[in-house]
């Protein structure tokens, strides 16, 4: 088990968003988190990466209780969060963005170069753009950068929040197939994705979140057949 959340609750100021969430990601799994706008998907990822402290409940990462840890501790342990809206550093170059991904694990120069090469293996485009200011890249390239930057910390678990938002269908396909490739590199993935159909096809299991509660969970291929999922999230 790489991640296990038990009765996790959280929110902002006075609003409670998440209500007693139970969720697991096993080693080497891609788990998809499905839910309507405002259901609390991004909030859950923020709790898991230590950005927001939970108000109740607990979660373990790689077998250790990490409730209340800060993002810098969690990144160091191998939990990387590629946030909604990419949050890349537009005024910095692509290379600087990537190096910041490895900020918490200061590696030797050669090791950094190896890491860069492995990111280029997934996103060859980034290699040509190393010296470019990240803010001047296209949306698709920026998303590749955001994922690549998240990989520079050598995560065991990657939290991906809507990696295909606003991208053209072909790019979406490329990004999703890359996510499938990450699993074969031994990285477990918790994926939030609006393209539910495509996401379920690359996922092992999935959870459906409705107004802060898990209302449905199961094997991805079973959820693809589920009548309610079909109606609400697959538009069938």
């Amino acid at each position: 088990m790489i991640l296990k959340a038990e009765r996790l609750s959280a929110g902002y100021a006075r609003i409670q968003v998440l209500k007693a969430i139970d969720l697991e990601v096993k080693k080497g799994e891609i788990v998809c988190l499905v839910g309507a706008n405002g259901a609390g998907k991004s909030t859950l990822l923020k709790v898991l990466s230590g950005v927001i402290p939970p108000t109740a409940g607990a979660f373990t990462f790689d077998g250790r209780d990490v409730t209340g840890r800060k993002p810098n501790q969690l990144v160091r342990m191998g939990l990387s969060h590629v946030p909604e809206g990419r949050q890349i550093f537009g005024s910095l170059t692509v290379k600087q963005n990537l190096f910041l991904g490895a900020y918490v694990n200061p590696a030797k120069k050669e090791r950094l170069d190896d890491l860069l090469e492995s990111v280029f293996g997934l996103f060859p485009k980034l290699k040509e753009r190393l010296a470019q200011k990240a803010g001047t890249m296209s949306g698709g390239e920026q998303q590749m950068l955001a994922i690549g930057r998240g990989l520079m910390s050598q995560p065991k678990l990657l939290l991906l929040d809507e990696p295909s938002l606003g991208l053209a269908p072909l790019v979406v396909e490329a990004i999703l197939s890359t996510i499938g490739e990450l699993r074969s590199r031994g990285i477990s993935i918790l994926l939030v994705e609006q393209n539910v159909n495509a996401a379920l096809h690359i996922s092992d299991r999935a959870y459906v979140l409705e107004t802060g509660r898990i209302v449905l969970q199961g094997e991805a291929k079973d959820l693809l057949e589920n009548e309610e999922v079909k109606r609400c999230y697959l538009g069938m």
């Binding site: 950005v51 993002p71 501790q73 969060h81 946030p83 537009g90 005024s91 910041l100």
Partner: peptide, 20 residues
């Protein structure tokens, strides 16, 4: 220094990189 610039531009993004 680069981390400081990242922090200045986008504190949320920077905190996700583990920058204090």
């Amino acid at each position: 220094g680069i981390a400081m610039r990242a922090c200045a531009e986008n504190p949320y993004g920077a905190s996700l990189m583990g920058i204090n």
